[in-house]
């Protein structure tokens, strides 16, 4: 039963990782930009939810109404004003910009909030659970997080495959120069895609802030988990990102079941094993370059 429990808790943890990873997957897969500030932005979203929740005295879930638009706007502005112009300096330039942003964000958050460990007060949602058997119970918040992760990834997949903006994103990703010749404003397409990715970062920040704790310097750790989920699942595939998150979560909880200190290490080992055996990831999309 303890193993079943480990797997179930792992799947639920995987929901968090999938949520961390979807914004990274989108920016990476569609725009081919590696966002090294991804984790720090997730932490920023959690702090923003903390501040908004305290100021308005509302539940963290309600702060999504502020945090999601705020991050989306920041994403649009960052892409439009900084990252897109930087692309002209070669593919390395945006990487350096996001690295710089990562450092700046960590320092600003440290300055503003000190190094104290925080979490978002989820109230009864955070403590209530459902006992499946005597030995196996799941927390509602964990289940909700997994559900939200699935919903966000399904939503992104539909957006990309069915809508005009999704079509524009795929075309621009295929061939930016020709996309312009077909009347697409590549700068705007990139900015909208980044806004959408940042909106998912906001959701990830709020849910992970409720499920666990965070500090201003947690970002790089989150980035690594998100990165592993994306690579395990396969670049450019949103379903892959969901699978990658779940695999990573299960690897960590099962590893911890073997020996508590092995959890994160087991995740890294599975990541390396997938990279060695299937470099394209578990669900690599065949038609993608």
């Amino acid at each position: 039963m303890t193993w079943v429990n480990a797997v179930v808790q792992g799947l639920l943890l995987g929901g968090v990782y999938a949520l961390y990873a979807c914004g990274l997957s989108l920016v990476f897969g569609v725009l081919r930009i590696v966002n090294l500030a991804h984790g720090d932005l997730t932490v920023l979203a959690a702090f923003l939810a903390l501040v908004v929740g305290q100021a308005l005295g509302v539940h963290p879930l309600l702060t999504l109404l502020v945090v999601v638009p705020a991050l989306a706007a920041a994403g649009y502005a960052l892409q439009h004003a900084v990252l897109f112009p930087a692309l002209r300096g070669g593919e390395l330039a945006p990487l350096l910009v996001t690295f710089g942003l990562s450092v700046v964000l960590q320092n600003l958050l440290l300055e503003a909030f000190s190094a104290d460990t925080r979490s978002l007060p989820a109230g009864t949602l955070g403590t209530a659970g459902l006992a499946l058997t005597d030995l196996l119970s799941v927390g509602w918040l964990a289940v909700l997080t997994l559900g939200v992760a699935v919903a966000v990834l399904v939503g992104l997949q539909l957006l990309i495959s069915r809508t005009a903006i999704g079509r524009a994103m795929r075309a621009t990703s295929d061939d930016p120069e020709t996309a312009q010749l077909m009347g697409l404003d590549d700068r705007k397409v990139y900015a909208v895609a980044t806004a959408i990715a940042f909106a998912t970062i906001a959701v990830a920040g709020v849910f992970s802030g409720m499920r666990g704790t965070f500090t201003p310097t947690l970002g790089p750790q989150l980035l690594i988990f998100a990165f592993e989920a994306v690579i395990i699942g396969g670049l450019g595939s949103l379903w892959g990102t969901l699978v990658g998150g779940l695999v990573l979560g299960v690897a960590q909880t099962v590893g911890a079941q073997i020996q508590p200190s092995y959890g994160v290490l087991a995740g890294h080992l599975v990541f390396l094993a997938v990279l060695a055996a299937r470099p394209g990831g578990i669900l690599r999309r065949a038609e993608r370059r």
Partner: peptide, 24 residues
């Protein structure tokens, strides 16, 4: 004017080598 704005003005190019979006 940028290329996509010229398309709006009314010129379109069918480029050398077709340049379709392969995954679409």
């Amino acid at each position: 004017r940028r290329p996509h704005e010229r398309v709006r003005e009314g010129v379109t190019l069918v480029p050398e080598g077709r340049k379709l979006f392969p995954s679409l």
